[in-house]
Amino acid sequence: MTNDTSTGTVSAPKPAALEEKLEEQAFKLSAWMANQGIFIFTAALILFAAVFIDGFVSLPNITDVFNRAAPIGIVAAGMTFVVISGNYLDLSVVAQVATAGVVLIAVSNETSIPVAMLVAVVIALAYGLVNGVAVGVFKANAVIVTLSTTFIGLGLLRWATGGSIYFGPSDGAIRAFGATRIGPLPLAMILFVVVTLILSFVLTRTTFGFMVRSFGSNREATRLSGVSTPWVVIGAFTVTSLAAMLGGFVLAAFSNTAVSAMSDGYDFRALAAIIVGGTSVFGGRGSVLRTLLGVVFVSVLTNIMVLSGLGFGIQQMAIGLLIVLAVSVDALARKATGA
């Protein structure tokens, strides 16, 4: 069985030249898909939804899509930094989003909103530092490191809250932020676009952003050119943590409640959005604006599945498949360009 798969591509009965040409074209196609595919796919998906899915084009539904897209989008925009720096992903955003949401509501109930935000910022910086030091200084694998910080973080949160739900005051500023909207656009969506623009500026126009991209494409060269690479990694993880914190705020404000389980699945939804947008998991290549597009794609896809009455299991399968397929296209595209 294993024998077949390893030699299957070699023993095809076509002439070698023709096969090579076909292969080259397949590679070119995947390279084009990896770079430009997302624009077509997003447009096609929205068109499909508008034509075939009942209730997709309605003000309440579009507002709902925006409301759900905003927190994931903010998290994904931040996590793009970790992915571009060549460190795969930050699984611990699940713990970070929930912690920020719970802290915002629970602490502001006791004291005030600025104090709660300050506490959340301190926690976010701590997450960024722990993940960043373990990955940047100790060169440990980012997936394993953030897997363990997820369990530590969620464990601490559940232990501290006992799994209870926190409600914000019904006339507070948090509720007001979550409920305000301009036309179909909730305030959260506007915040998401602003965060995307700021992070995009940081990634493309600042020295730090340049270092993150350069570290992602060639670690050794970046180190030899005199960049303090541990700080680049710590910085990338801190950006992700601060974005995850904002995402937690937005998610908590949306429903004016917070619970330790509220961010389940944020890790892979954010990863799917980033990869589908065309940012490479191999590092170095990608942009925050592409992630914005990926978030639209994933959110519309999820919305279509919800409107069609598909269950949670199918949704998870679809997003998992989407990640594998998008990365496969990326991997084949890299082979095509010889990178």
Binding site: F312, M317, A318, G320
Partner: peptide, 22 residues
């Protein structure tokens, strides 16, 4: 295909978790 095993099996992790639910 040549995907990094961390990402490939992570995708499978989510896919199979969904499959178990279905």
């Amino acid at each position: 295909v040549g995907i990094n095993s961390f990402i490939a099996t992570l995708g499978m992790l989510f896919f199979l978790r969904g499959a178990a639910f279905v």
